[in-house]
Nucleic acid binder design. Structure first.
Lengths: 352, 352
DNA sequence: CATAGTACATGAATCGGTTCATCAAAGCGT
DNA sequence: ACGCTTTGATGAACCGATTCATGTACTATG
């Protein structure tokens, strides 16, 4: 097999060797039922002998106009994205949503430089995009839209004129805050992705703004902007530091709401470090209900959201739009999935 | 902008409208420095007016011969893959390894049917493959090799004639077993991915076989094939069930070694359920040192392996091979990364 | 035997760019 | 004015397949 080919083997070479036209050779691979057994056998043999790797995907794509893949545009730099415990569930959902269609998933490369990242979107060989939780002014969004391919947006940005899958972040956050309020907490700190009221104007509809707003509503009279701390990136460490500082203050909070379980874990670490017992002396509520929430000790009270379902639905819609013959999303579809406050053991009424 | 184009806009249309040749139009996009400001401006304006989405990636790829992406072939069906807490670290590593090269990562679609899965590999528009922990007889491996593109294999299959990144699974497993043995444990159960000595012949060099063999060596006189349990898939539940059964037996083990932290977590659940205290009455050792290991209570003693580094190195090698101008891996490179037994709080000497 | 029908092979057109050898025009020094 | 170098535009060749209208040979039918 494979007599050393120092030049690349093309379908034409195979056809020649098999003594048939390239047309027939192509059929032999692509639609075996259209050629005689005889020809097919000869072509396959010739391919084998020449070490032909099979029809070049790039050429096939050009001709057929189908890339056979969808692009995924992530919130953060790829490297960080995979520190988020919610990401796997989302990806799993996408994989399930694409079960039937034999479609690849292209993780679009990112870059420190925003314009470079946008180029990656422009140059991606895909049939459509899933935009996952991307800040609204990210140039990649515009780049994706400009491709005039089907697009589905998840979580963010809400503004984009595409089918949308997400949750009611404000209501979800509110439910967490209300719960603490009902338990009797009046000094509640917030671990946030963003600064309180950070240019609220420009960030309207931003997921973080919505959650913050939800916390404010839920906490009502107990809301105190001075107890809001910004934690970036979304990792335990910044949350740990913020919490240490909060707990060491003269009038420490009796409860903490965090915008992610990861932040909540960081808060938990800080509490352990200072010997503050949870939930007796400090209640903590997370967000996401990622797998770590159950594993933490104590298990975290948190706002559950259907990560996997988000992925599944987004993929499903996208695949269908692609099959239906492209064009950016037609009629405006939108799915707001339900969230639920899951009460575990990290919350209790404040020490009287 | 974008006067309704009911036909797809090609570069030719843009060139025409701008009053330049397609050659110049192409340059205007691809190498702006080769055309005058004047022309570039006209072309860009024409593109804008026509709603031109930019050069078609598929066409560009065909001509340039670069796909701008590498394919990732996963151990398991995509949907399951993302239940493995080690996967994110590995992906993170890949992302870091590809930092410099603006390269996408294509998750190759899988399928219930092995041949269909192999086709996906054949048709993937990529410049190379990373094969991640794939069983040795999987047809996708052969399909990838047949593409004659650069390939790097991680963990498995060891047999493939490509650059390889992995660990010494046998030694790593041995260290875990030896540790338990030294603590004095003599009845040690094993939670395995495969059946003991399952067709050892055909599965030589298999990761699971290696680990099992390592456990056997480390346990020495304490090795008991009857205490080996198969847990599939790699999830807490099967491990929980196996452990329940083990602990309820008349002569329960005093320790358990598991081939993954996930299985160890399942064992932990079972112990909790039966009120068996860990580590006082039962020691548990995991494998991977995934993030859940620290989170578990008690934190797991486990064999740490550098997931992220594996990804980083594999991506780095692959990117370089691609840059160097393809051809499957030349000289045989191999990196065996180091593992380390991390002792935490899930292990102790057996109750006397 | 004529006619229609079937089965299959052919090869040119096409997908949408990129590249490069040529050539024209402009700038420059003397 | 002349030769020489730069700068930039041109258009044809090419990347490697797929597809489809056309043609041929052979079979079935009446």
């Amino acid at each position: 097999m494979a007599e050393s080919a120092n030049r690349r083997v093309r379908l034409r070479d195979v056809a020649e060797r098999a003594g048939v036209s390239v047309g027939s050779a192509s059929q032999a691979f692509g639609r075996p039922e259209l050629v005689s057994d005889e020809v097919r056998k000869r072509v396959l043999a010739a391919a084998e002998a020449l070490g032909y790797p099979g029809p070049d995907p790039a050429a096939r794509r050009l001709r057929t106009g189908r890339a056979g893949a969808v692009g995924l545009i992530f919130a953060e730099r790829l490297g960080y994205q995979f520190t988020d415990p919610a990401a796997p569930a989302f990806l799993r959902g996408i994989a399930r949503g694409m079960q039937e269609a034999p479609t690849g998933l292209l993780l679009i490369p990112d870059s420190r430089y925003r314009e470079e990242a946008a180029s990656a979107v422009r140059e991606a060989a895909v049939d459509g995009f899933i935009i996952y939780s991307v800040p609204q002014n990210d140039p990649r969004v515009e780049a994706a839209l400009a491709r005039r391919l089907p697009v589905v947006t998840v979580d963010q940005p809400r503004g984009a004129d595409t089918p949308f899958v997400g949750i009611d972040d404000r209501a979800a956050a509110r439910s967490a805050a209300e719960y603490l309020h009902e338990l009797g907490h009046r000094r509640v700190a917030v671990l946030s992705f963003i600064k309180a009221l950070d240019r609220a104007g420009t960030l309207e509809l931003d997921l973080s703004v919505e959650r913050l707003e939800g916390y404010r509503e839920g906490l009502a009279d107990a809301w105190d902007p001075l107890l809001v701390r910004t934690c970036r990136p979304n990792a335990p460490e910044p949350a740990r530091e913020a919490t240490l500082e909060l707990l060491r203050a003269s009038d420490p909070p009796t409860a903490i709401v965090a915008m992610s379980d990861i932040l909540a874990i960081g808060a938990l670490e800080a509490a352990n470090e200072l010997g503050v017992s949870v939930p007796a002396e400090l209640s903590i509520v997370g967000f996401d209900d990622s797998p770590v929430a159950t594993l933490a000790s104590p298990p975290l009270t948190t706002v559950a959201q259907p990560h996997e379902e988000k992925g599944r639905l987004a993929a499903d819609w996208l695949v269908k739009d692609i099959a239906r013959g492209a064009g950016p999303g037609r009629r405006r579809r939108q799915a707001i999935l339900t969230t639920e406050l899951v009460v575990r053991e990290s919350t209790a009424p404040p020490a009287s």
